[in-house]
């Protein structure tokens, strides 16, 4: 990044190549749409380039990058003024079709004792569980799980305190546990909204923005 700051085009090219897939993955989970995620990733790289002079050598580049990504994604979600929607097409979304949530709601209303522990289905269930988290919980989980970032670095990227991140991640993981554990144990597909008790939603901030 120091080379980028000093105007090296090759270094910038390498940064893009190195981080693009990771960035797009995080953004895709944040906004729910691949195409939008790629657009936002380009916006993030543009901001990195424009503010390269402000980069401080003691900051980790990944932290700085995901700070910008967080701002860009938050702004996009605000502009959309709605929860991110999933628009994966059928071929990409596996056996649950293009609207996995609808399918899951229907399926969970009837007993499916012989349901196989299908890998594609598992992926969709996990995906859905992630989408059920609020944006902050989701980002904290993604940075922790896939970027291997420490609480301190996530705190910097999300402009929160490490203690807030600790609480945020604990709530996020509890939410995931409540959604995914019944599926793991008994093959029970989670239901939208009412899988968790109201108190759980309230206490864990599930799918709400009041996660602090």
């Amino acid at each position: 990044m120091l080379e980028v700051r000093d105007g090296s085009a090759t270094a910038f090219e390498e940064l893009v190549v190195r981080y693009q897939a990771r960035l797009v993955r995080i953004l895709e989970h944040m906004v729910g749409r691949r195409e939008l995620a790629e657009d936002l990733a380009q916006e993030v790289f543009l901001r990195v380039y424009r503010s390269r002079q402000q980069y401080m050598p003691w900051a980790k580049f990944a932290t700085w990058l995901f700070t910008i990504a967080n701002n860009v994604a938050s702004s996009a979600l605000r502009d959309g003024s709605r929860r991110p929607e999933v628009t994966l097409d059928g071929s990409e979304s596996g056996p649950l079709g293009s609207r996995p949530m609808d399918w899951l709601v229907q399926a969970s209303s009837s007993e499916m004792p012989t349901r196989q522990f299908d890998k594609a289905e598992l992926r969709d269930v996990v995906q859905m569980a992630m989408e059920s988290l609020g944006p902050r919980q989701r980002l904290a989980v993604l940075l922790n799980k896939f970027e291997g970032m420490s609480y301190a670095d996530i705190a910097k990227a999300m402009e929160l305190s490490p203690q807030s991140i600790k609480s945020l991640l604990a709530r996020a993981r509890e939410n995931l546990r409540q959604l995914l554990e019944p599926y793991f144990e008994d093959g029970i597909l989670p239901r939208k909204n009412n899988k968790l008790s109201d108190s759980a939603v309230a206490s864990n901030g599930l799918a709400t923005d009041s996660e602090e």
Binding site: A21, R22, H29, K119, R123, M130, F146, L176, F184
Partner: peptide, 10 residues
Amino acid sequence: TWQMLDELDA
């Protein structure tokens, strides 16, 4: 449940 997130392929 944390390990299950590995299913989210990139």
